[in-house]
Simulated scan of single mutants.
Amino acid sequence: MPQQLAIIVLVDVGNALEAKSLEDNTYLFDNMKLQGSENEGTGKLVTAINGSYWSDGSQASEQVLNWLPYSLGSLPPTVPRGYEVERARQTDQKALADLEALVNRPAGQGADPSADLAQIQRSVGTRVKSNRRNRGPAAAKILDLTGKVVPADSSAAHSYPAPVITDIYGEAVDEKIIYPAEYGSPDLVTDGWYWSATVDTSRPGTYAYTMKIQLHKLVESGTEALWEPVNLTCESWLRITSEPKRNGFTGAGLGLLPLS
């Protein structure tokens, strides 16, 4: 039965956008460290893939890779789906309630109405315009790292959308070592999509592959703001080994289990 191997692609989005490069801004992890993977937590991960073959030399089992991209310095991926939209709706409802209270307030009571109106407008935040030409996030408001709406005139750090893997190519694909594709999934943490690949473990060796990763940069033009896509690349490696199929209980060749 194929073994599921996970590769976490953690991107420091803010620094990557500033440097216009994923070099030194990407941290890769997998679940094969105890099986020989090297350079865990760096941008130079070499994932160990252990294959096996039967006594006649045929491939005994293939492996399956899953790539999961995450953002460093953003809202955690475990928050409910639609969290940003819900927070935007809550601020809109609060602004409408404050505006209604301001309209119904008797004349001459409280501070200057224009100052209160300006405060309400500030607390509404900035809504990001939807851009249908790319795979960026849906329209919502800008949130900070704690999940609160960022006021329109604030300079506070904002949360970036999660990175999106848009392609996997390179030597490992050209040599038909891996067969990557994007799949739909009910897993809401990955927003319903993830990249996966089967691995041909019958050809031992070290093979490079490249991931095309799309980040999103906040661009403000006048009173509008939108997430502008920025496409960058990141390279990684697979080291495939192969050995005879063994009995998991005895460590020897396949056969009957010893009986006392």
Rank of each mutant, 00 (worst) to 15 (best):
P163E: 01
R127F: 06
L143R: 05
P113I: 03
I168A: 14
G108F: 06
P163C: 04
D116V: 08
A97R: 00
D187T: 11
S154K: 08
I142L: 04
N104R: 05
P137A: 10
Q109Y: 14
K94C: 00
R133V: 15
I142D: 02
V103L: 11
Y160P: 14
D98F: 01
A152H: 11
V149P: 15
P151L: 03
V150W: 04
D144K: 05
L96K: 09
P106V: 03
G147V: 09
H158L: 11
L143S: 10
N104L: 03
R127H: 10
Q119T: 05
G147T: 06
L102V: 01
Y160A: 11
A101S: 04
A157S: 14
I142R: 05
A162K: 15
A181W: 07
S155G: 15
G136H: 07
A156V: 13
S185R: 06
V150K: 05
T146W: 05
A138Y: 12
E86Q: 14
V85D: 03
A111K: 13
I142T: 07
L117D: 08
T166G: 01
A101D: 02
Y179E: 06
V164Y: 13
Q121G: 12
G136T: 11
R135H: 04
P106D: 09
Q119R: 12
G170P: 14
R89K: 05
V128W: 10
D112A: 15
N131A: 11
P113Q: 02
S159T: 05
S123T: 12
A138I: 11
G125T: 12
D174I: 04
V124D: 06
G136L: 04
R122D: 14
R127N: 13
Q90V: 07
K94Y: 00
A97E: 00
G170F: 06
D174M: 10
P106E: 04
S159Y: 04
D167E: 11
D112I: 07
A139I: 05
I178F: 03
Y169W: 05
A97G: 00
D144F: 05
Q90Y: 09
N131E: 15
V85M: 03
A140E: 08
G184D: 14
G108D: 09
K176Q: 07
G108Q: 05
T126D: 15
P180K: 01
I168T: 10
A162W: 02
D112F: 12
P180W: 02
D92A: 01
N131C: 14
V164R: 13
G110T: 09
T126K: 14
G136W: 03
D153A: 06
Q121C: 10
V103C: 00
V164E: 12
I142F: 07
P163T: 03
V150P: 15
S185A: 02
G184H: 09
L96G: 00
D153W: 11
I177A: 03
S185F: 03
N131K: 14
Y179N: 08
R105Q: 11
S155C: 08
D92M: 01
D116G: 12
R87Q: 12
V128S: 13
S114T: 14
R127C: 12
L145E: 06
T126N: 15
A88Y: 04
